[in-house]
């Protein structure tokens, strides 16, 4: 409850306490702390990335979720790695989703192209994940990416649309198929 109150306050001064709460091994506190960190947004990004260098696994998983929720491009490396490599499907799911909600306007223009290329490649790979919910999350992120690059990189948007066409044929999970249909509508 204390964590919930701190989160509600949205104070930057609460960041260290909220980050500490990610390591308590208490899911209720961690959920509230993640929400609080997402509300605080950008000021929480650097401390979160520092936390990711050497803390216990559980805390790392929550930190990835917070970074995904904030969408700051400084968290991109972490999200790319987690979406592909994390052993927990719920972390891969959250990271894949986060790759679709990166605030691209915050990235220096000279870095934009290479960052978006990496996200596209990673998401195409993650859309083959063996867990349906990770593939579902990848579809949501690819849909967002296609919209983000629709004007700047029409070829990438086309590539995503083609990918959806193929995936919907090979996909055996009805929920993922439905989500692709929804993405194709846009």
């Amino acid at each position: 409850e204390a964590v919930e109150q701190l989160s509600a306050a949205r104070l930057e001064a609460a960041i260290p306490t909220l980050i500490a709460a990610l390591g308590y091994n208490n899911p209720g506190a961690a959920v509230a702390a993640v929400e609080g960190l997402i509300e605080i947004g950008k000021p929480a990004v650097t401390p979160l990335i520092e936390l990711l260098d050497g803390y216990n696994y559980g805390a790392r998983a929550w930190a990835i979720r917070a970074l995904a929720g904030i969408g700051d491009p400084r968290g991109l490396e972490m999200l790319l790695d987690a979406a592909k490599n994390d052993f927990s499907f719920s972390v891969r799911r959250g990271a894949a989703r986060g790759l679709g909600t990166i605030a691209w306007e915050d990235l220096p223009p000279e870095q934009l192209q290479s960052a978006q290329t990496q996200v596209l490649e990673t998401l195409l790979q993650v859309s083959q994940d063996h867990q349906w919910v990770v593939r579902y999350a990848a579809v949501t992120a690819l849909q967002k990416l296609a919209i983000a690059v629709a004007i700047s990189h029409t070829d990438w948007a086309m590539q995503i649309i083609t990918h959806f066409d193929r995936q919907v044929e090979s996909e055996d999970n009805l929920t993922v198929i439905a989500r692709i249909w929804l993405a194709q509508r846009e």
Binding site: R93, G94, A96, R97, V133, Y136, A137, T140, L174, T175, A178, R179, W181, L182, R185
Partner: peptide, 28 residues
């Protein structure tokens, strides 16, 4: 969602199906 899809003609997403997916997106 899958119940909705079984109930509706092929490739048609019902309003209910879209509603459920919107909720699912928020839980990822």
């Amino acid at each position: 969602l899958e119940h909705q899809i079984y109930m509706s003609p092929s490739n048609e997403l019902s309003e209910g199906a879209v509603r459920v997916m919107t909720l699912m997106d928020g839980l990822l």
